[in-house]
Design a protein around this nucleic acid. Sequence first.
RNA 1: GUGGGCGUAGCUCAGUUGGCAGAGCACUAGGUUGUGGUCCUGGUGGUCGCGGGUUCGACCCCCGUCGCUCACCCCA
Length: 418
Amino acid sequence: MQTIRGFRDILPEHISLWQRVEQEAFSLFESFGFKEIRIPVLEKTDLFARSIGETTDIVEKEMYTFSDRKGDLVTLRPEATASICRSYIQHKMYATDPVRKFYMTGPMFRRERPQKGRYRQFYQIDAEVFGIESAYIDSELIFLLNELFKRLGLTGLTAHINSLGCPECRPAFQRALLDFLGKRKQVLCENCTRRIQKNPLRILDCKVDSCQKALEGAPATIDHLCQACDDHFTIVRTTLERQGVAFMVDKSLVRGLDYYTRTAWEIKTTTLGAQGAVAGGGRYDGLVEELGGPATPAIGFAIGFDRLVEVMEQLKKNGQDPPLDLFIVALGNAAMAKAYHWSCDLNLAGFRTGMDSRGKSMKSLMKRADKLNASHVLIAGENELKENQLILRNMDTKDQTMIAIDNLVPTLMTLLTK
RNA sequence: GUGGGCGUAGCUCAGUUGGCAGAGCACUAGGUUGUGGUCCUGGUGGUCGCGGGUUCGACCCCCGUCGCUCACCCCA
C-alpha cells in the first residue's frame, strides 16, 4: 500500500517548519486586520469553470472532477479564490460591510505530472481583500509577503510585478499584440498558435526560445494602460519603493488564470529547479460580479506552502527534535509502576518527560535517554525505592544528586527550572 | 499528455562474463550483574518493484507493466 501518485504524507519530523510558517503568517495577517475563513474542499465544478476560465490549463485538464452519487458534477478545489468569492456572495457580506480581509490555508488539488515542488495535493496560504480599489492594498499585500519571507529568514527571492490592464484598455492592447504577431505567426510554437485565438495574452510568457525571439519589441501591457490603470500601477510601484520592498517590473508576467486585472505578481526562487513561483497573486476586479455578486474590486495572493517549506529546508539545517527535559530510567516492575505516575504528573506540570516500559537493561535505557536528547535522567531502581530517594543525573555534566521521592514534582520544578 | 534518469536491507548505495545476496549507517544484544555519546564483538533485517520470456542456472539478458524522479507544459 502506498499513497496515490502526487500525494504524500508530511511526517512528524518535518512538521515543525509547517507550524512555524503558519504561526508567522497568521499572526502577521491578524495584525493587518485579516480574519480566518474556512471553506469546503469540494465545490460545484461550474464555480471553477466560470471563475478560472474555461480555456485555462487548470480547467481544461488539471481538475479532479467527478459526478457524485446523484450525478452532480463536483470538483476538488484547485485554488481558493473562487470559493472565497462564492462565500462572500453567498453570505451577502457586501451588505453589512463590503470591505473584508480573509486568510486561510488548506490543500488544493491539481492533476498535473508531479515533479520537484509540484504535487497533486499541495497546500496554499491565501489572503484575499474585497471592496477596496485603492492601489495601496496592492502594495500592502506585496509588502506583507515581503515581510513574511523576511521573518522566516528567506533570502534569494525576487518579486516580479506587472499590470495586466482592465476591460477598458485590454481590447486595444490585444489588437496591438495581434497586429505585431501577425507578421511572425510562422515562428510561434504550436501552443502559441492556438493561443492567438483563445488567449493572446498568454503568448507573452511562453518560454519557447523562438517565441521569445518573436516577442522582441512586442507591445507590453504596461505601455497600453488606460489612465486609471496607469495611475494605479504607478502608486503600487512608488509605494513599494518607499517601503524598501525590492521588486522588478516583468512585462512578460501574465499568469494562467483568466480573472486577473491590473496588478499581478509572483515571488520567485531559483532553488526549486523549474518550479520558481513560491507565491503569486493579483487583482481580480471583475470576478465577484461575474459570479453573480455586486461589482466589487478584489485582490489576493496564494503562497505555495510546500514550496516555501522546501526552500526553508534547503536554507537551514533542519533542527533536531526538541530535547526532553527528563527521562525516567525505571528498573523493575515496582519502579516502572511508580515511574508511570511520576511521568504523567511531570507532563502535566509542563515538563517534556519520557520513559520506556519495555523492560530493558539500564544500559539500553540510558542509550534511549541519550537518543531522545534528554537533559536529565531520573534513575529509579530497587535500591532507590528502598531508600525513598532517586538519582537525578545531568546528562551534560554527568553530575548526580539524590532527591527525595516525597514531593517529587515540586522538587524537580525548582531544580530543573532555574 | 511528451521525453530523460532510476527501482537491490529501515536509509545511502556496491554487485565483475549469467554461477551461494553484499557494505556503510541505523536498529538490537553483549563487552561493563545498575549509568548514555567514543571504542570492540555478535545478531536481526531481502518478493533484488511486479509479471512473463530466454537459460542447466537471471539482481544481471529480452518483452511488458507499475512506481519514483527530473524536465517540457502550466502554476503555488
